[in-house]
Amino acid sequence: MPSSLYASLQQKIGDLKDCFIVERDDISDYEANDHRKAVAFVLLASAELEAYVEERCKKAANEAFDRLGKSQPTTAGRGLVMWAIIRKSSDPHPFDVADVQLHRERFSEIRKSYVSSAMKSHGIDDKDFKALAYPLGFRPGDIPEQLFDLLKELSQDRNPAAHGPVNRAKRLTEPKEEWTRFSKILELLLIFDRRIEELVAS
């Protein structure tokens, strides 16, 4: 079952689609304002994605540390402890149950450090996403590679729209294709949403 945070994200992006995505029969029928609305959709929907990923990961981290405090080290809890130990690495982290309690005095510090790092991301590309997910115990294959590709592509498209004049919108894709892209991202994020719940619980 999707988390309440995921359900809220789905609703918010759906509402943005209704407000900003104009669908016309032929690409030549689109007006300049339709493209401007598509830019607004990309920027606002991207912000909602970023907020969701950050909040979902912070919530999972806090739940994992609550369990650690009760001597119930879950996959996410073990992953976060190892993340702190090998902070310089950006790869998925190996961890062992026996290592966790050796660092009990650092649990509060590690929790604050991870939550702080989650709040510092600006935008959500593939690297940002991995930096938040891997410390929680995600392994290669847990998250479809297509999600990383879509987030990277979205970030590359979003930045010019965010920092350039609005008429750059015409260089972006057909407005209704932006909704198609976000629909796919939402579909793949559901896999992430369900898996993160398992990592906190097991």
Score class of each variant (00 low, 15 high):
98 A>W: 06
194 R>W: 01
195 R>D: 08
49 L>E: 06
162 A>V: 15
42 V>F: 00
12 K>G: 02
145 E>N: 15
93 H>T: 15
178 E>W: 10
17 K>V: 05
120 K>W: 04
29 D>V: 00
199 L>W: 09
37 K>G: 10
19 C>F: 06
141 G>N: 15
178 E>S: 11
20 F>N: 11
165 P>R: 10
39 V>R: 08
200 V>P: 07
26 D>Y: 09
67 R>K: 14
151 L>T: 06
185 I>L: 11
102 L>M: 11
136 L>M: 07
124 I>F: 07
25 D>S: 02
194 R>V: 04
54 E>R: 15
75 T>W: 09
111 R>E: 14
143 I>L: 06
33 N>F: 00
195 R>A: 09
80 L>Q: 09
164 G>K: 13
61 A>W: 02
75 T>L: 15
139 R>F: 10
54 E>P: 03
23 E>L: 07
68 L>S: 10
130 K>G: 07
2 P>V: 07
180 T>Y: 10
19 C>V: 01
74 T>G: 01
176 K>R: 06
182 F>P: 05
81 V>L: 08
6 Y>E: 04
46 S>I: 00
79 G>F: 00
46 S>P: 05
86 I>V: 13
92 P>N: 12
138 F>Q: 10
149 D>S: 14
157 D>P: 00
181 R>L: 13
114 Y>T: 06
114 Y>M: 03
113 S>V: 12
192 F>N: 03
115 V>T: 10
37 K>T: 07
192 F>S: 08
65 F>Y: 14
165 P>M: 07
156 Q>S: 13
191 I>R: 08
32 A>K: 13
52 Y>I: 11
97 V>A: 13
99 D>Q: 11
182 F>M: 03
47 A>W: 05
72 Q>E: 04
91 D>E: 14
54 E>D: 03
161 A>D: 03
109 E>M: 09
186 L>E: 02
53 V>Q: 04
32 A>D: 12
173 T>I: 09
73 P>R: 00
143 I>F: 01
125 D>A: 06
184 K>N: 01
32 A>I: 13
197 E>S: 07
38 A>M: 05
112 K>V: 04
1 M>H: 10
17 K>W: 00
86 I>Q: 10
170 K>R: 14
111 R>S: 13
74 T>A: 07
195 R>H: 13
7 A>R: 14
135 P>L: 11
65 F>C: 09
49 L>V: 14
180 T>P: 00
110 I>R: 11
8 S>T: 04
39 V>P: 00
118 A>W: 00
116 S>E: 10
104 R>G: 03
18 D>S: 13
84 A>W: 08
85 I>P: 03
164 G>N: 14
122 H>W: 06
85 I>G: 03
152 K>D: 14
31 E>W: 06
64 A>M: 04
57 C>L: 08
200 V>A: 12
16 L>P: 05
77 G>T: 09
200 V>G: 14
64 A>P: 03
139 R>H: 12
103 H>E: 10
157 D>H: 05
155 S>Q: 12
51 A>H: 08
122 H>V: 13
63 E>N: 04
117 S>Q: 12
48 E>K: 12
150 L>K: 09
133 A>D: 05
103 H>R: 13
33 N>I: 01
147 L>C: 15
140 P>N: 12
125 D>M: 06
19 C>G: 00
